[in-house]
Write a protein that binds this DNA or RNA. Structure first.
Lengths: 123, 123
DNA sequence: CCGAATCCATTTTGATACTG
DNA sequence: CAGTATCAAAATGGATTCGG
């Protein structure tokens, strides 16, 4: 295994959860197992390509599990792995900070459709 | 002010601290005020251009202060703003997770030159 | 010399069409 | 439904230049 040099440990974290989508995916998975199409609906602006790609990388880094059900049409689910759950408090803090930030920037009424609500809609 | 739509609040957080460098910059600033050249030395792989650009954006979002000393040669310092300090616990958690992750991946001995050490070297 | 700006190459991400 | 392929756009990187 090639040992990569980091100048500060947060760079190692960013290698796992950095980029435009990984934190968003992981945040959604903190609310439970989700299949690919659910994630796609929760993230209307991600492309299929990026979703697949980011999920693969998260799986490679061991923070999510990929569960394939052998059936037609295909059904694939993703969930936080045990290791991934060590990120949960960080993910929750990131979400919480974003909410406060939006309140600060836009005032009390801002446009986040909470995923708890979205999850309801998906049922 | 244009109201942007987010599908989950973490997206608002990522708009402020996302991208390849912002978390790294902010982590360094949690250890105190730094001038541009110090940050550059703490981040050997960032280009001057990106450093300047990211610092401008962090300043625009109100998480850092830019302090210009009118002297020759020029001296510019950056520090976490009061608002930026609301990110400190998140930044510390991100660093801590990275350390644990490196230990898990590479074993007990890994190649992060702690910035406390680097800060000493810079004196 | 320091901090920043400009120009162009490379990498990452996006849009669309397509496959089993 | 889940994933792939191709091409286009955006973000990031490298080298150089500039003002003070």
């Amino acid at each position: 295994m090639q040992k990569k040099k980091y100048n500060i440990s947060v760079e190692a974290t960013l290698e796992v959860i950095g980029g435009k989508w990984k934190c968003v995916i992981l945040c959604h998975l903190t609310h439970g197992k989700k299949r690919t199409s659910e994630l796609k609906r929760l993230m209307p602006n991600i492309t299929q390509k990026m979703l697949t790609q980011q999920l693969r990388e998260l799986e490679e880094d061991g923070v999510i599990n990929r569960i394939v059900h052998n059936q037609v049409p295909p059904k694939v689910e993703y969930e936080l792995s045990e290791y991934g759950r060590s990120l949960e408090s960080i993910l929750n803090s990131l979400c919480a900070w974003g909410e406060k930030h939006l309140t600060k920037v836009y005032g009390d009424k801002f446009s986040v459709l909470e995923d708890s609500v979205l999850n309801e809609q998906l049922k």
